[in-house]
Simulated assay, not measured.
Amino acid sequence: LSTSMLPKMLTIFWRGSREIGFVSCLVQLFFVHNFTAVESGVLMAMALDRYFAICHPLRHSSILSMPVLAALGSLVLLRGVLMVGPACFLLRRKAFCQHRVISHSYCEHMAVVKLVCEDTRVNAAYGLCVALSVIGVDLTVIVVSYTMILGVVLKLSSSDTQIKAFNTCVSHVCVILSFYVPALFTSLTHRFGHSIPQHVHILVAHLYILLPPTLNPIIYGVRTKHLRDKVVVLLKRKGI
């Protein structure tokens, strides 16, 4: 997701080019929102993996076999393409005003829609429907999965087993929060948060792109004992 902006970012740093062509903008918009939908689907698939690993451990490998995982990944990718593609085609047919300065550092859908001189209610409604359908479906599966996981874990007799089961899920929950909170905020405030300052919109849009890949190595790495020991040794050498 974060590499969707990399080509244009490099042209800005290397060549000082602060403009982007309309087709290039649509391509960037497509990949940003497509990979957002894909990443949401990956988090949903990880929740299913945790559910089968904890609630049906003996059947985990048979249920989530390689063909099933390949089919699930293909469906997640196809969903993103089919849902984001029409948004780009709708924008392609619109007439834009003379003022064509995007208020974001990348081509975000609603930021581009605001540059259109025609009626944009269809574009805004379609974008909101895509966001709510993708995030709504995936979050519903995640919440149901973890609700069932919680019910199974609380029934375990051993506290050590309960702690081990919770540790299996805590990293995934942290990644979910780091991804969905900024994504939902930037999606909803574009449409309903008209009183929110523009710099807040831009800041949260950056967090939604950069925060998850920044935190993911920390979230998953902190559970690795060997890595923790190395960090402790390094901090002791620094006198911290």
Rank of each mutant, 00 (worst) to 15 (best):
Y51M: 03
L77V: 08
V81E: 12
C88S: 15
C169F: 03
Y208T: 05
L203Q: 06
C55E: 11
M9I: 03
T214D: 00
V141Q: 04
P213M: 02
D229W: 06
V231W: 04
R100I: 10
D119W: 03
S145I: 11
V173W: 10
H109N: 11
R79G: 14
V122A: 12
R121E: 08
V144A: 12
V27W: 09
W14S: 13
V170R: 09
V143L: 12
R50A: 02
L1W: 09
K238Q: 14
L128Y: 07
L29D: 01
Q98I: 08
H60T: 12
F31P: 02
I163K: 06
G136R: 00
D160C: 13
M46W: 11
L77F: 11
R92H: 13
G151V: 01
V84N: 01
S158D: 15
C174H: 01
A131W: 09
L128S: 12
L1Q: 11
I209P: 00
K94Y: 05
V181P: 05
H226A: 15
A53N: 05
G193S: 01
I218N: 07
V137E: 15
M46H: 10
V152Y: 14
G80L: 03
H56I: 09
K8I: 13
F89T: 15
V113Y: 02
A124K: 10
I63S: 07
M5S: 08
L29N: 01
D119E: 07
G127Y: 01
K230C: 13
P197G: 04
L132T: 15
L188E: 07
V23H: 09
F35A: 09
S2V: 15
G41C: 01
F179D: 05
P7I: 00
V144D: 02
L235G: 01
I54H: 04
F52V: 10
L235W: 07
R92W: 15
G193E: 03
G85D: 09
C107M: 05
F179A: 09
